[in-house]
Design a protein around this nucleic acid. Structure first.
Lengths: 334, 334
DNA sequence: ATGAAAGCGCTAACAC
DNA sequence: GTGTTAGCGCTTTCAT
């Protein structure tokens, strides 16, 4: 009685059928007589058979694993996403490989190159790849993007309608009597940032707001103090930050300078990450349904991998909404 | 000119050598004449050759991937760990598969069963598996644990010396004049919690402290309010919480009840997760070198997988330290 | 409906 | 040092 893992051949022998029959019985139920199928299944779990993933991958060309590529696993912005894709992928029989590119396009490209062949497809979150490379990649590997579109619709994607959330924030501020507000921009290379800036102008005009763009700033807490000072200098009564992390740094600096929030300056964040309601005052911010985005992205990819699945087409856009907490209030009277 | 991926055979042909030679040249540099090796490498990247992971896995029996199994990816406690293992694993040529077991021993067992064969080994963080299953698993798959030991030393592991950090917290509180302190315990099944409780008694005696154990509580923010109320009821002047998440909830409740921290009650957390210095007052907490733990765990596993690597032996224990912030202060005079 | 047999791309003996 | 040759365990035509 040797202890090596039983192979399909062992199962076939035990069931008294050919390997091919056993293979069919196990991997494509239905194409086979119920009786033999039952016999095979029976033998299989009597022997404690577990198919070899690599053998299956080699002969079928499919690996049943997909990569989730994020710029920074420790950025709370991605938690929900990781959860969402992970859950859906598991449900559909895929294994998720989490890849951290450390905010570098190079590392992203390298990782993806190494993974080609190892994964059936990839979900790219906030990809740092430039359009060219993204398009090329999409032609070699089934890809779906999150918070980023591929030119020419080469890959399906899901995007969060953050611009709408930002407009909601502006409306909120306008309704509170603010007239001069600042937007602390994110990195110049941020796809999401440029989309938001496009809506700033028209929304401001419509609402009678005077919006000053500050930055760019790194989307980090450590960049916040500079943004806070710039806002103070700009004489605005409200600041909308590129993301919550930046807003945390802003709040910190304002506290240090003794500037009351929201009495003297209202602050709005974006993403509603873990911590947004831990800070004081609790942060008013734009909430993004990231877990849902993850499930959606996984669905899109799985559909493509299954052959079904409409060709790319327009990206799925998910709504966002402003969560009003304590960091925003009426404009100070002057 | 067909566009399928070039195989090792194509490379060999192009270089005018046998496949085996090409294989050696590419995967084990040194065992071959420098000239042929150069020729092969050359041909390889001229053709844009990428080895097939599954073929390699099938014939070698190694997959070059390892699983990192955590109870909850979205728990900030694991961020550093994920980073650390990921970084080290990447450096050593492994791909990391992140598995979220959603706090369930069943899910953990199931995931691991499905992964056997897909991964060369696994790093188990705060495994929810009972000793029996853990031992059995360790006999089937190279495993290293983090924050948990396997009975009989069946698997190497790295443990965080949290008990020492807790003692530091107690010393800190004693030095501030506190005499009655509470410990809000974690889940009864928590290995880490039981280790800490073991040091409570002796440390308290030595320091002349009266320590009351409250709980158990879920290690979540939502469990905090109950812990806060219990502490108030217990008439203590300081509370040490099982983890920061729980402490966050405690702080919240105290704020709601108008209890000044630390003036009336000092609060200590554990883990120093993201957010600990976002709350007000900033949380005094025990900092754990999780990223380092991750790198260490990865090293341990890689060593075992490479054949070298001393047999299990004692777990590596990493020091922790108390980070004093604003949530602790002198005991109130009475 | 089932079986026989040919690989998938690579590694690892084993010869030379 | 390099070539030959078996497989690794499975899926998949192609027959039957």
């Amino acid at each position: 009685m040797d202890d090596r893992q039983p192979t399909l051949r062992d199962v076939a022998e035990a069931a008294g059928v050919a390997v091919s029959t056993a293979s069919r019985a196990l991997s494509r139920p239905g194409r086979i007589s119920p009786r033999t199928e039952a016999r095979v299944r029976d033998a299989a779990d009597r022997l404690g058979y577990t198919p070899s993933a690599s053998a299956r991958a080699l002969s079928s060309g499919r690996t049943s694993t997909v990569a989730l590529v994020v710029p920074d696993v420790t950025n709370p912005f991605y938690f929900g996403l990781v959860r969402g894709t992970g859950a859906r992928l598991r449900e559909t029989g895929y294994v998720q490989v989490l890849v951290d590119t450390e905010e570098s396009a190079e590392a992203e490209a390298r990782a993806l190159a190494g993974l080609r062949g190892t994964v059936d497809g990839a979900i790219l979150a906030s990809s740092r790849l430039d359009d060219d490379r993204l398009v090329r990649l999409a032609s070699e590997l089934p890809v779906v993007t999150v918070n980023r579109t591929v030119p020419g619709g080469a890959a399906p994607g899901v995007v969060l309608d953050t611009p709408s959330g930002i407009v909601q924030a502006l409306e909120h501020l306008a309704s509170l009597g603010h007239t001069r507000v600042a937007y602390a921009a994110g990195p110049r290379t941020s796809w999401s940032d440029s989309r938001r800036r496009a809506v700033l102008e028209p929304a401001a005009a419509r609402l009678g707001l005077d919006v000053t763009v500050l930055g760019p700033y790194a989307p980090l807490r450590t960049a916040g103090p500079a943004a806070a000072d710039a806002a103070l200098q700009a004489q605005v009564t409200a600041l909308v930050a590129f993301n919550d992390l930046l807003a945390f740094g802003v709040l910190e600096r304002l506290e240090a300078r003794g500037v009351p929030v929201p009495d003297q300056l209202s602050v709005v964040g974006c993403d509603d990450v873990f911590g947004a309601d831990l800070v004081r005052p609790r942060l008013t911010t734009v909430a993004l349904p990231m877990e849902r985005a993850g499930r959606h992205a996984a669905d899109l990819l799985v559909a493509r991998l299954s052959g079904l699945g409409a060709p790319p087409g327009d990206p799925v856009v998910l709504p966002t909404h402003l969560v009003i907490r304590a960091s925003t209030g009426p404009a100070p009277v002057r």
